[in-house]
Simulated assay, not measured.
Amino acid sequence: MTFVWLMLTIAVALVIVDVAVRKLLGIKRAKLTDPKGKKIDLLGRIICVILAFIMYPAFIETEVLEMNYLFIILFTVLFCFQAVVQYIYIKESKEFIITLIMNVVFVIFLFNINFLLNLYSS
Rank of each mutant, 00 (worst) to 15 (best):
V84P: 10
D34K: 06
I16E: 06
V49I: 15
V15S: 06
E63M: 15
P35N: 12
A30Y: 12
P57W: 03
V105Y: 14
I46D: 02
V19C: 01
D18N: 12
I98R: 04
V64F: 15
V85Q: 09
C48F: 14
L78G: 07
L116A: 09
I72P: 01
E66K: 12
K91S: 13
T33H: 14
I46T: 12
V17T: 05
L51V: 08
T76Y: 04
L100I: 06
I113L: 02
T33A: 15
I16Q: 01
I50H: 07
L6F: 08
L119P: 12
G26Q: 02
N112C: 12
F96N: 12
V17A: 08
A58K: 12
G44K: 10
L6A: 01
V104A: 03
E63D: 10
F75E: 03
Y120G: 09
T76Q: 03
A11E: 07
F111M: 15
V21L: 11
I54S: 04
L43D: 11
L25C: 08
G44D: 02
A13D: 08
V15E: 08
I88A: 08
V64A: 14
D41I: 04
V85H: 10
V105C: 05
F79C: 01
N112G: 05
R22K: 10
F3T: 14
K91L: 12
G26V: 00
L116K: 02
R29S: 11
T76C: 01
L25Y: 13
E63Q: 11
F96T: 05
P35R: 04
I10T: 06
